[in-house]
Design a protein around this nucleic acid. Sequence first.
DNA 1: CTTTTTTCCTATAACGTTTTCGTAAAAGCA
DNA 2: TGCTTTTACGAAAACGTTATAGGAAAAAAG
Lengths: 336, 336
Amino acid sequence: MNGISMIQLAKELGLSVSTVSKALGDSHEISASTKKRVLELAKKYKYKPNPFASNLRKKKGKQIAVIIPDIVNNFFALAVDGIESVTMSKHYDTFIYLTHENLEREKAVLEHLESGLISGLIISVCTGREGYAHFQEFYETTRLPIVFFDRVPDLLQFPKVIANNYESSFDATARLIKAGSKRPALITTTEPMFTSMERRRGYQDALEKHGIVFTDEMIIHCTDDMALNYSILRKIFSQKKRPDGIFASIEKYAITSYEVCKDLKLSIPKDVKVIGMTNLRTAALLNPSLSTLSQPAFDMGKEAAGLLIKMIEKKSYAAANDIIVLPNELTIRDSI
Amino acid sequence: MNGISMIQLAKELGLSVSTVSKALGDSHEISASTKKRVLELAKKYKYKPNPFASNLRKKKGKQIAVIIPDIVNNFFALAVDGIESVTMSKHYDTFIYLTHENLEREKAVLEHLESGLISGLIISVCTGREGYAHFQEFYETTRLPIVFFDRVPDLLQFPKVIANNYESSFDATARLIKAGSKRPALITTTEPMFTSMERRRGYQDALEKHGIVFTDEMIIHCTDDMALNYSILRKIFSQKKRPDGIFASIEKYAITSYEVCKDLKLSIPKDVKVIGMTNLRTAALLNPSLSTLSQPAFDMGKEAAGLLIKMIEKKSYAAANDIIVLPNELTIRDSI
DNA sequence: CTTTTTTCCTATAACGTTTTCGTAAAAGCA
DNA sequence: TGCTTTTACGAAAACGTTATAGGAAAAAAG
C-alpha cells in the first residue's frame, strides 16, 4: 500500500499509464527500448502491481483455496506441502481453511468463497451424510475449477486425485492373512465415504479370495472421539472371540489399537497383527514398529494443485472428468 | 464473478449505488426502511461484495499471511490450527507459505507480499545466519503489522509469541539429572537462533545448578539432514565416554536419537535417558514411551493471530513491544 | 510519389466498491 | 412565518489496474 503505483511510474517516464502497463506485460505493441526504460524504473522503485486492482479488472487472480478437515494430521500436512510446492513455483497464493469435520463450517467456507476471492479450489471433504449439494451449488454460481483429493464425493463430476484404496487395502488384508491372521478386523469410520467404502471393498474381497467367511462384526466402526474409540475397541478386544488382526483404515485408529492392546496385554504381533493406514513418521519407532499402508500424500497434493492450475490457466475444463490415481505404499514392519 | 453486483441491486431497488453501499454498511445516513429493503434483496440474490473492489477502494482487506518453515511438523501444524481458529472466527482469510528453511524463499515471499495482498503477517523465521534485514525492510515499505512466533528474531522490535524456553529447558535438564544422568547432552541445531540459545542457557544453568561441569562437547550440533544427523549421533554414542542423557531440543533429533540408540543397542532409559522437545502425538507409544517437553503450539498460534488482528483493527501498534510467553509442558514417561 | 501497412503509443472506459460532498425535504425552533 | 438543523439520499470521484479503440508517424509496398 505504500509502494509506488503505475501512475507514478508513467509520470516520471513521461509515458501514458497504458504504455507502462503494456510494457510491464511485455506486450508486442511496445518498443524494446521503451520496455527497457519501464522495466528499469520499475525495478528501481521495486514496483509491485496492486493485486486488487489487477484482479478486479481482470476478474480473476492468482489465489486458490485449500479446504481440508484437519491440518494436525500427517496426511493432510503432507498434502498441503505438496500443494504449496506447486502453487509457490507457479506464483499462486494459497488460502487454507480447516473444517474440523464440521459440515456447517465447510458450507460456510464455500459460501464465503463465492465472493470471488479465489480462482480455484482444492478440497478434501469432511465426513457427513448430507450429500454434496453445496459443491454443486458453489460450482454453479462461480463456475470455478475445483479439484477434489482423497476424500472425494463419489457422485459428483469433478476432477479428483485419489489413492488406489481398493487394491492396496486388498493387498494389506492379504498380508495380514498370510501372516497368520484368521479373523482380521477392519476398523473404519461410521461415516459413509467413498474412500472408506473402497477400503472396505478391498478388505472384503481379500477375505473372500482367501476363503475367510466375512461376518458383520468383523467391521469395527469408530468415531472422531478418541476416548469413545478406546472403549469401543477395548470392549471388542476383551471378548473371547476377539479379532487376531487389525487393518486400521484411519491413522488414529491404529494408534488407539496400540493403546488398547498395550492395556489389555495383548501382544502385537503374536496375539494381534496390525497394519495401519497412516503417514506417521514415527511408525518405525513404535513398539513394535508399525506396518503401514501409507498414502502418497505429498504427491496427491502436487497432482491436485498441478491439475487445478492447468484448469485455471488453460481453461481446459475438459479435465473435469480427470481422475488421477496414485498408489499407496505398503511397508511391512514388526507388527505383523 | 458470476454473482450479482451492487449496481444491479441498486438498479432493481431504484436506489443509487452509494445508498446501497451505505445500507449494507449499516450507515446511520440510511433510513431503517431502506436498509431493510436493501438487505432483503441482497439476501435474496445472495449478494457478496467483491473483495477486490472493496480492498482496492479501502486499501486494505481481511487477508493475512502465515509464513512457516514447515507444515509437516506437529508443532507448526498445531500452530496453524490455532491461527486458523482465530482467523476463521474473525472472518479473515489465511494465506500459507512454507519456506523449508530456505532463506531465499523466505525473502521471496516477503517481497511478494509487499504488493499489498495482505493486511498482516504471522511468521516463524527459518534458520539462517544472515540477519533479519528483510523483515525490517518489509515493515518499512508496507507498515503492516507483523507478529513473530516461536522462532523469533531477538533483535527486532516486533510483537512476539514465544514459549518459556529457558525455564522449561532448565527444568527438563534438571529432571534428567535427578533421574541419574551424570553427563546429559544437549542436541541442538547448528544455526544460531534465539529459541535455541534460550534452551541452551536453560540447559547450561541447570548443569551448573547441579554441580555438573559443562564442557563444549556436551553440546551436539545437528543439522537439517536426517542422514547426517544419524552419523553424527552414532559416532558420538559409539565412544566410550558417551553421554548418558539426551535433551533433544528439536523434535526430529529425538527421533534420530531413538534410532541410534536402538541400533547401538543402548537401552533407554538404562544407558541413556532421553527427553525430547516435541509435540508428537505418538510420543507415548514409542519404545520406550518418550518423555517430552511439548510446546503450547495451538495456543501460540491462537495468541499470535489474536494479537495480529487486534493490531490490524485497532491500529494499536502500541502492541509493537508485546511479548507473550506461554509455558511449555514437561511430560515424564519411560525414557528417563 | 501515393497508398497501404506496420509500429508504437495514448485516451478512455471499464472493473465494483467506498467515501466525500452536495442537496432536497422534513423537522425543529423562535 | 422564516430560519436553522437534521434526515435521507444521490452524484461523482476515487482506488490502480487492464482492455479496447484509435491515431500519428514511420516504414513498406505499389
